[in-house]
Amino acid sequence: MPSKLYLIIVTAFTAIALVNGQTAGTTTTTWDCCEPACGYTSNLSPGARGPVQSCNKSNQPAAAGAQNACFASSGNLAFSCDKYQPIIVNSTFSYGFAGHGNTATSTCCKCYQFTWTSGAGAGKSMIVQAINAGGITDTDFDIYTPGGGVGDYNACTAQYGAPSGGWGRQYGGVTSDSQCSQLPSNLQAGCHWRWEWAGGDVNEWQITYKQVNCPSQLTSLSGCTPAAI
């Protein structure tokens, strides 16, 4: 028979990891302009059809054989597309895209629904499609948000002439809605989303989430459809 200590530990772990049958995690923000990791067919999760679309400097489809702009500096380059900004559905629900998980083949193109349980966005929800992975924990979602911080890699200088450390903080990005005016006009709506819809910085807010089938509103933009669940 398990010891009382063992049962206490298991119960505590379950309470932390699962809330009403959902997994607990956190959100962060990113916009590094790199070609998404899920843009490589070899990175797709089992059964997914894709890969995720990448774009050229002008946000048109990247040419065949284009190299990730975060790892190449000249020639035929591939960037993230401006269509990966958050999409507002109503005052409490949005669609979007995110990096999720450290192993691409485990998460690429899958969709997840989460609800914030802390921060100014508490009670608001998103469905996001994972288009990037690597360097992200298995319970965190790095939401694609213009002005959300370039993080470890920066192709925004090559694509948009952004400062060498990106707009705002390298990790976390701009710190106010007014700073969204620093971004190119085609990215400003996604920057405002964070402050005007979510209500704040979004970084390190707590969530509960679960995997869901991907809506066409996301797969039609990314070009990638995961296996149904």
Score class of each variant (00 low, 15 high):
T26F: 05
L183N: 01
Q67T: 12
P86Q: 11
F71A: 10
Y84I: 04
G135I: 04
L5R: 13
L221K: 04
C81K: 15
V174M: 08
S181E: 09
A133K: 00
Q211P: 01
I88C: 04
F71G: 02
S91V: 10
H100Q: 12
G119C: 07
V174C: 09
A64Y: 15
S222V: 02
Q159L: 13
S125P: 00
G151C: 12
N68K: 04
L218I: 14
Q206F: 14
Y153T: 04
W205C: 10
F97R: 01
Y144C: 12
N213R: 14
N59A: 08
Y95S: 10
C108W: 00
C34M: 09
V10F: 07
R194C: 03
A69D: 00
Q67F: 03
S91Q: 10
T208H: 06
T115I: 10
P51Q: 03
S3A: 15
Y84E: 02
Q60G: 14
T26H: 05
G166D: 01
E196C: 14
C191D: 04
Q217I: 05
Y112N: 04
F71C: 06
A69H: 00
T11I: 14
A24W: 12
C111K: 04
T139F: 09
L77K: 01
L5M: 12
A78W: 00
F71K: 02
Y112P: 02
N76P: 11
P86M: 09
S54E: 09
L5V: 13
T92H: 07
T29Q: 02
W193V: 00
C156Y: 01
W167M: 13
V89H: 12
L5K: 09
S178A: 11
S216P: 02
I16M: 08
S178D: 11
N132Q: 13
G161W: 06
G223Y: 14
P46C: 10
C55E: 07
S222W: 04
F93K: 04
Y209H: 13
G190S: 05
A228R: 15
G190Y: 01
W31L: 04
W197A: 05
A66Y: 07
P146V: 01
I16L: 11
T145G: 14
P51H: 03
E35M: 14
G172N: 06
F141L: 13
A15R: 15
T30Q: 09
G173S: 14
T107E: 03
F97L: 08
I127E: 00
A227W: 14
Y153F: 13
G65T: 08
A24Q: 05
S220L: 05
F97V: 03
S54K: 02
S3L: 11
S106G: 10
N186S: 15
C108P: 10
N102F: 13
D82F: 14
V150Q: 00
C108D: 10
S80G: 09
Q179R: 12
G21E: 10
T208C: 05
K110V: 02
G199D: 08
T30P: 00
T103G: 09
K4D: 05
V202E: 03
I143G: 00
Y171P: 02
Q85G: 03
D82E: 05
T26K: 14
